[in-house]
Amino acid sequence: MSNLNSFIQSLPKAELHLHIEGSLEPEQMFEMAQRNGVTLPYADVAEIRAAYDFNNLQEFLDLYYAGMSVLQTKQDFFDLTYAYLKRVHADNCRHVEIFFDPQGHTERGIAFADVIEGILDGLDQGEADFGISSHLILSFLRHLSEEDAFATLAEAEPYYDRILGVGLDSSEMGHPPSKFARVFAKSRELGLKLFAHAGEEGPPEYVYEALDILDIDRIDHGNRSLEDDVLVQRLVEEEMYLTVCPLSNLKLCVVDDLKNHPLKVMLDAGIKATVNSDDPSYFGGYLNDNYIRTADALNLSKDDIVTLVRNGFEGAYLSPERKELLLSELSKNISASN
C-alpha cells in the first residue's frame, strides 16, 4: 500500500451520499431472495455481477429496482443497514448521512414502517457497535409524481424526528427539480433539510433550479455545474457543499475515464466538494475505494485529501460537540502522519 493510500485509510471520514438500497451486495441479495421466496432472474452471484455493466443511469436504475424486490421485511432492512455500517467502519468512516427510497418499497406493498424502522434500528445498532453517528434522508423518486411525493411525506409523519431531511433521486433527465417545488416547500415548513441530485446527467439549469426554486441545503453530484462559470462562482460564494461520487460517475459513464473526473477542478475552484460512494455494491467501491482510486487518477496531494475529508465533516449535520470531536481526531491523524 502506498503512503498516500495508508494516509487515506488512517483518516476518520464522513459519507454524505449513500443510497442504502445501493449497498445490497449480490451475496446478500441471494440470501434474502431465498429467505423471502423471491425468484431472481439470475442463476448465481457471478451472473448478477456480470449484469453490473451499465451504459447509463437508466440501465443501472432498472437493475437497482429489480434488486430491491428481495427487501421484504423489517429484518431485511436492518440487515442491509447494519452490513453497510460494518463495511464502512473498516474504512474508518465515523459519520454517515444516508438516503432511502420508500416509494421503491411501498409501491411493492411493503409497509413504510417496516422499511424505516428496520433502517433506523440498523443505524442505532451500528452506532452502538461501531461508533458511527448517522442521519437518515428520505428521498423522493423524481420519475414519479409530486403527488406521490406528498403522500410519502405524509406517511413519514410519525418519524419526522428521526429524519434529517428529504432528497430527490432517480432518473434526472426530463424530471427537473422544479417539478417538486411544492413538496420541498412543505418539507421546509416541517423543519426538514433539503437535498437534491442535480447536475449529474442533467444540465447546469437543473442546479440553478435546485438552488433557486427548491432552496436546497446541499447538492448531490453537481458535476455539470462546471459548465457555467457564473454558477461555479455562486457555489463558491455560498459555500454550497457538493456530495461527489467519482466511481459512480465512472460506472454510469458520466465521465469516460477517472483521469477526466472534475473533482480536482472543483477543489482548485474553491468548491466545497466531498467524496462519497453513492451505490457502492453496484459501482465497485466503498468510501476508501473512491478516495484511493480518484487520488491516483487525478494525482491528488495529501492537502487535497485533507480538504475533501474536512469538507465531509463541515458539510455534515453534526452537533457542535460531535463535529469538534471528529475534526480534532482528524487533526491528530494528520499530525501523526507528518
Results as ranks from 00 to 15, higher is better:
N3T: 12
S10K: 14
P12S: 12
E15C: 04
H17R: 05
E25P: 02
Q28G: 06
Q28N: 07
M29P: 01
R35F: 04
N36C: 01
L40R: 02
P41G: 04
P41Q: 08
A43D: 09
V45D: 01
I48C: 10
A50Q: 11
A51K: 10
A51M: 05
F54H: 07
E59P: 00
E59M: 09
F60I: 11
L61D: 01
A66G: 07
A66I: 09
M68C: 11
S69C: 08
Q72P: 03
K74E: 12
T81P: 05
A83F: 03
R87Q: 11
A90G: 07
R94Q: 15
V96G: 04
F100T: 12
R108K: 11
R108E: 08
F112R: 00
A113R: 07
A113C: 04
I116P: 05
L120G: 02
G122D: 13
Q125F: 06
Q125H: 09
S133A: 12
H135N: 15
L136A: 15
S139W: 05
E146H: 02
E146D: 11
A151D: 06
T152C: 13
L153H: 06
E157A: 15
Y160F: 15
R162W: 06
V166M: 03
D169N: 15
D169S: 15
S170H: 14
S171V: 12
H175A: 13
P177N: 09
K179L: 13
F184M: 01
A185P: 06
E189Q: 13
A196E: 01
A198V: 13
G199E: 06
G199W: 12
E200A: 01
E201A: 14
G202M: 06
P204H: 11
E205I: 03
V207W: 02
L211T: 05
I213E: 01
G222S: 11
N223T: 14
N223F: 15
E227A: 14
E227L: 14
D228S: 08
R234F: 08
V236Q: 05
E239N: 11
M240E: 05
V244H: 13
P246W: 04
C253E: 14
V254S: 12
V255E: 06
D256G: 13
K259F: 02
K259S: 05
N260D: 08
P262L: 09
L263H: 01
V265L: 00
A269F: 10
K272G: 13
N276L: 14
S277G: 09
D278V: 08
D278A: 02
D279L: 03
S281E: 11
N288V: 04
I292Q: 09
R293V: 00
A295I: 00
A295H: 02
A297W: 00
L298H: 00
S301Y: 01
K302N: 07
D304R: 00
I305F: 00
L308T: 03
N311Y: 07
E314Y: 09
G315L: 03
Y317H: 14
S319L: 14
P320E: 12
L325C: 08
L326W: 14
S328R: 09
E329H: 07
S331K: 02
